[in-house]
Design a protein around this nucleic acid. Sequence first.
RNA 1: GCUGGGAUGGCGGAAUUGGUAUACGCGCUAGUCUUAGGAACUAGUGGGGCAACCCGUGGGAGUUCAAGUCUCCCUCCCAGCACCA
Length: 951
Amino acid sequence: MDQYDHKKIEKKWQKHWEETNAFRADDVSSKEKNYLLIEFPYPSGDGLHVGHVRSWTALDVVARKHRAEGKNVLYPIGWDAFGLPAENFALKTGIHPKILTKKNTDNFKRQIKSIGLSFDWSREIDTTDPAYYKWTQWIFLQLFKKGLAYKAKAVINWCPKDKVGLANEEVVDGECERCGTPVEKREKEQWMLAITKYAQRLYDDLETVDYIERAKVQQRNWIGPSEGAEIDFAIAGSDKKIKVFTTRPDTLFGATYMVLAPEHALVGKVVEKLENKDEVLGYVAAAKNRTEIERSAEGKEKTGVELRGIKAINPANKEEIPIFVADYVLGGYGTGAIMAVPAHDDRDFAFAQKYNIPIKHTINPVYIRDDVASRTDFTPKHKIVSVVEDGKGNILTIQWGPEMGGTLFLGGTIEEGETPGQTALRELAEETGYTDAEIIEVGDEVFDYKYFASSKGVAYQAFTKFVHVKLHSLTQQEQKLEQNEVGKFKVEWVSAQQVPTKVTEVLHVYAFNKFILHKPYTGSGTLTNSGHFNEMNSEEAKQKITEFVGGKWVTTFKLRDWVFSRQRYWGEPIPMIFCEVCDKKGAGWQPVPENQLPVLLPDVEQYRPGENGESPLAGMPEWYNTTCPACSGPAKRETDVMPQWAGSSWYYLRYCDSQNDQVFADPQKLKHWTPVDWYNGGMEHTTLHLLYSRFWHKFLFDIGVVPSSEPYKKRTSHGLILAEDGSKMSKSKGNTVSPDELVEAFGADSLRLYEMFIGPFDQPTPWNSGSVVGVRRFLERVWKLAQEPLADEPASEALEVTLHHTIKKVGEDVETMKFNTAVSQLMICLNAMEKAGKLHASQWKIYLGLLAPFAPHVASELWEKLGFEGSISKENWPQYDLAKLVAKHVLVAVQINGKSRSTIQLAADASEAEALDTARKDSGAAKWLAGGREARAVYVPGKIINFVIER
RNA sequence: GCUGGGAUGGCGGAAUUGGUAUACGCGCUAGUCUUAGGAACUAGUGGGGCAACCCGUGGGAGUUCAAGUCUCCCUCCCAGCACCA
């Protein structure tokens, strides 16, 4: 008998596939096209990672299945080869990144081929190849021509170690994503791409694509639209205005100050007039120098400085209000300025308290309890809720029974002629006997609380005031309780920490938040202190007040424009030329004419960026000195290069026509292949690569060079493979697993099968080296069984059912990426085949067809050994026969009172009467049925019988 | 804090969407072949109990003939975002 020799057969079939161009996609074909895409790798020196294998094998299984189903599959591969590691290596060793890249891609290629991935190598691309980046540069020029690429002095995130400007997306927790150094702020002239112009479409069109929900949520979050009003605040005695963005124009009457971000342009314009010029300039400078880390290390403590000498005018009530500069307002969001409403915003409240700014209440809370939602017949009443403190951190509570609302603070009805404070003191004395008390505060607000008093059968609208009381001593008189109150409650002092666990009623929670936690009310409600808008609800007032002050309803986004310059070497040169002569005419930046593309990246001697952060190219006058395309005078090339995200923003388009030197891809081929049908990749690329490439694609669609408005129809994501202890795999921890060793020891098929079996595809799973053995054993058993002589007769009914069920299950599982259960089903099926004895050729044909996408080498070898016609990888996906899915006999569980007691064998089409009858006679069940009365019997055909027995 | 996703044997994980919980694999136990070994083979393997049986899907209530699955409350874990006005 032949031994299963994975090395021999894997080498044989890999050679065969290469020689026959087995996986080449056809640009012209009558077959249904199917474009499957994985994220092309950065060819790092570490080589292939088991994470790559998981993602790529998954789509390889899909690709192989789809080919077997007769589709024209495009499954390409290439290299995202620009980037920092190769450049840092060059810095250390002086070896050109090109050389390192070649070495690494060769290694990757060898590894990829060794695991039998069915890529179409004829379309291989490399972002660092001038024939490729020519078109990256071309796309940049189109962006420039449409005004979407512009140079601007921008405050950028600067990594002092890598000496490179970073996009917002590359800053993680205030640190450089790559090296972990705290990021600084720097002002620099940068090329920017106006992705914000596409924010709305990038947001809205997520509706039209089939992305894993997590990815959609993350992108929505990142784009971050927010609806609100833009409102102008005039500066008193000046024609200057400050535009603010607010989502709460309904609280405009409560705006008692304004805040500008330190970066706000107005600060510089008015600073000379200020009484405290030096203080303001000092604050602004300090804010700029602070790193993100320092800012968050300072906690949420807010700082700021008033601009003394100028005032703004609240456009709603014409009151003069102070203007502050404070870094809790962000320069890059909204208009960089806010109106501050301390009564109804947490941050403004904290700031106003610190700087003694008036707090003006303008929203009365409203709450309608569910039990009166549909009623209109309310009896008005005036109440108070009072929080009584003993000055030692304890709060007075009244413990009622659950029907009275459980644990509450003191409350009561305001009687004729009483102030809320008097009511509070009276109720305190009556219910608890305490008399030595003082009113600290009576809240301005009136809480409109609608509820149903079941004891009285009345729906009340309780206008509730809030009183804060301090008890000086426990001096007590006798309680004066009403008849119905006697013995119904207990007075208890509760520590402030414990209150939230006991007091849950809306009004009382509100009182606690207000007086003890000092939280402002930030919800909606009814307007007050707001002129003729009083009594209007928040939603209506938002529109009406915006109109009243001449504001505009707008949507703002968190998304910022994309900082596109890198002061580095190993990237695509930005194809722009600066001419000082033309600059005087307002057109200093000139695009390199398209017929001069690509602008080649020259070889340099020195890879280190300059101390001021300029690109190494800035040290090469022989390269950057050139002539102006507009006036032919002397001019200089841009020496910054593009970020790594450039080449990957459109690579899937190049695969359609990777050799074309006339256009970036032939429109006919683009039409044939795009959009990508299925794109699998990591979650870490959701807000970077995925969003950027959607942006570029939409732009290319707008200028008419691609036929669809979205690049990817479907996006899925694989879970990370963790180390055996559940921690992250990393080279530095030395807990990585090498695909090479696994291929050597167990074979590519075992590696592929194991990674598909390891766990649910979209979830992180720890690696388990022991489990690889399991799938290897499985393949050994397949191999061994295939050496047995074949049967002449078609096999037993039971096995046919299992086989056809397996066809159905594996097919469905592959499409829904439940690879783990697909493999499991293949194992179950093999178990059944081993038990069945001799197998018929047709059964092997089915089984190998199903196994082939997962373990293509073994399946191909056995297919050939068994003498089957044609290629297993082409058009041999088995079809299941619905008739064969239905077994003639089924096993039905018998339950007594919901507990499984026995199983019985029934004909699949057994009637209810037959089934129940059989069950009653079953020895296992009979014992439980005896001595009781059968109250009910439930029969679910093919599944279960349940007898309800009363005793 | 907000948003999204989770919690099932010793481990990775199944469960036809309300119908025999723990499929499949690992590990473990016993045995077989073997000088030996296991990446070999066979059988067993949720917990408790001598047994009949009982208990079991993070915790607590509920709906149902029947709940891992549905409803409500709670606890914990993971991921993303976070001074976003």
